[in-house]
Amino acid sequence: LAPRAIVTDAGSTKGDVVAAARKALGARISQFVPAHPIAGREQHGPEAALADLYEGKKVVITALPENAAQDVETVAAAWRACGAVIHRLSPPEHDAVFASVSHLPHVLAFALVDDIAAKPHADTLFQYAASGFRDFTRIAASSPEMWRDITLANRDALLTEVDAYLVQLQSIREMIANSDGPALEQVYASARDARQQWAAAIEAAERKNG
């Protein structure tokens, strides 16, 4: 590795990548600047490429303590040249955040579609699945091999999120079993409000960066 060379990546997990980089690069670890573009699609392979994929999208740089500020800025500038907006997190922060808002949703989508597909009347169920099912399960069309690796690479953080979701799901099950309409409505209303606030924030950011 040339002394002035900078190595970076575009992976969905950071803890395992940083550990591998430390093992491979040793004293040259300062030359590795980890990054993650938040611009995934369910399609994969060269035929799914988009020239403007990163325009207006976030890229999280998870700089290491050993990184020189100039090298971090070089990587940031490369992503900005693709139209991306730079954000910064530590590797552990990154993996905890994306276990919640990316990795868990993929696990849920894969699990739901697999569960329905295994039912004896799956053909009938899929025949009547409409836009809500399509929207929720879109990401289940993603690469199984890639998501197998992401799931295991971020195992600890993802297990924390799966356990928390199981608690929430059990709570909702009890509300349904008890015919507790007010409690269900409260959960649904809280989720709707949070979803609307998130969507508004995303739209505002896109207008700002557009």
Rank of each mutant, 00 (worst) to 15 (best):
I139H: 07
G40I: 04
V33R: 00
V113A: 08
L166G: 07
V33N: 00
V85N: 11
D163W: 09
E203D: 14
L112I: 03
Q168S: 15
D123Y: 03
G210N: 15
N209V: 13
A68F: 09
D115P: 03
V107W: 04
A19N: 07
Q186L: 10
S90Y: 04
A48Q: 06
R173N: 14
A77V: 11
P105R: 03
D123S: 15
G11I: 01
F98A: 05
D156R: 07
V101S: 13
I202E: 11
G26I: 00
S190G: 15
A140S: 14
H103M: 05
Q186R: 14
A69P: 10
A199P: 04
Y165N: 10
H36W: 05
D163S: 14
D123Q: 15
H121E: 14
E73A: 15
L158R: 00
A81S: 14
S12K: 01
L50D: 08
S102Q: 11
Q70I: 07
P144K: 05
L104E: 02
A21R: 00
A191M: 12
E55R: 12
A194G: 15
D114H: 05
V72L: 07
E47W: 05
Y188P: 06
F110N: 07
F126K: 05
Q197M: 11
A19F: 02
A96F: 07
T13H: 01
I86G: 07
F136N: 11
L53S: 08
Q170I: 09
Q127R: 15
H44Q: 10
A118G: 06
E42P: 02
A205F: 14
A109H: 01
D16Y: 04
P144N: 07
E145D: 10
E47Q: 08
A84F: 01
C82R: 13
E42R: 03
D52K: 07
N154K: 06
S90H: 02
E93C: 12
A49Q: 06
A111G: 08
S90E: 09
S90P: 03
A19Y: 00
G210E: 15
E93M: 12
A27P: 04
